[in-house]
């Protein structure tokens, strides 16, 4: 399995990369870690004429704390995020998500920007980004703009990236004290992709739920926020009964996927069960 013939450019800066996109348009594909793109190129599901390798652009990798948020460069690998003491301490849910992607070798190469821009409907990060209220930063010819993660995923492999924009960073607000977060999934046996993946974060105050964030991946055409679950939890005590009642709404707002691995009904069931598990564990973590 060898990709089709392709030209290769390696811009030195983000600005240069944006200019190349302007010049080459849809003939070009961006390459960073390549762990979403190269399998597609090898299977010849895509045959771009040009690869623009942004993988070595300085300043687009790594994590910094800024204004009570973690700013993550698009080229930061899953391994770097999963193993970062800063992320583990400030936002465990994010480290937990990164650590469940693919396998060791995939996490060494795959990048958060590449994964989010690829927008596989069964990818792990999108659920966490939605639950954590992350902002996705897109840099284009006119500069940078940012949008909430839940508005970024528009469908299977479809995002809000337009024209010549490059996903340049992600801004993840640090959950307040009294919060607990969890990512867990029913993984497809061979690939590890989520048949149903749930990211949940709960913030407790005076024994009740002040706020809840629930992002679900793998169930529908795109990762989504389970609004009705979040609403059902607000102001209640995090009891098993309240969680179960709220989790029943996990797939209310979507039309679940149906494929070889799971029927739509089964995915609806998985969403309910795994949302319940995620919330129960998030509540435990919030208390500890």
């Amino acid at each position: 399995m060898i990709p089709a013939d392709v030209d290769y450019y390696r811009p030195a800066t983000l600005e240069e990369a944006v200019k190349m996109l302007q010049n080459y348009g849809t003939e070009a594909k961006l390459l960073s870690g390549g762990h979403s793109l190269l399998p597609i190129l090898k299977a010849r599901l895509a045959q771009p004429e040009i690869l623009i390798d942004i993988g070595h652009i300085p300043g687009m990798s790594g994590m910094v704390m800024e204004n009570n948020a973690i700013v993550i460069g698009a080229l930061t690998t899953h391994h770097e995020i999963a193993s970062s003491p800063i992320v583990q301490k400030a936002c465990f849910l994010l480290a937990e998500t990164a650590g469940q992607i693919g396998d060791v070798q995939v996490r060494n190469r795959g990048t958060i920007g590449g994964s989010l821009a690829h927008a596989d409907p069964a990818a792990d990060y999108p659920a966490a980004m939605i639950a954590l209220d992350a902002e996705i930063v897109l840099t284009g010819p006119e500069g940078a703009r940012s949008m909430r993660a839940e508005n970024f995923f528009e469908g299977a492999y479809e995002t809000a990236i337009v024209g010549n924009e490059i996903l340049s960073s992600v801004v993840v607000p640090i959950p307040p004290s009294g919060s607990g977060g969890v990512y867990c999934k029913a993984a497809q046996g061979a690939s590890g992709f989520a048949v149903c993946g749930v990211a949940a974060t709960l913030t407790l105050g005076n024994g009740t739920i002040e706020s809840a964030g629930v992002g679900i991946t793998g169930v529908a055409g795109a990762a989504y926020r389970a609004n009705r679950v979040e609403e059902a939890l607000a102001g209640l005590a995090p009891t098993a009964e309240n969680i179960e009642t709220a989790a029943a709404h996990a797939a209310d707002e979507v039309d679940p996927l149906e494929d070889f691995y799971a029927s739509a009904d089964f995915r609806r069931q998985l969403a309910r069960v795994w949302t319940g598990r995620a919330l129960a564990q998030a509540a435990e973590r919030a208390k500890s």
Binding site: Y8, G34, D53, Q105
Partner: peptide
């Protein structure tokens, strides 16, 4: 050849990678 089996694993800058899913130019 699909990033699954790991038979092609090598160390690249000290990190294990599946060399079927890295371009030589990378």
């Amino acid at each position: 050849e699909t990033t699954t089996c790991g038979a092609c694993t090598v160390l690249m800058d000290g990190q294990a990678v599946k060399s079927c899913t890295v371009l030589a130019v990378q």
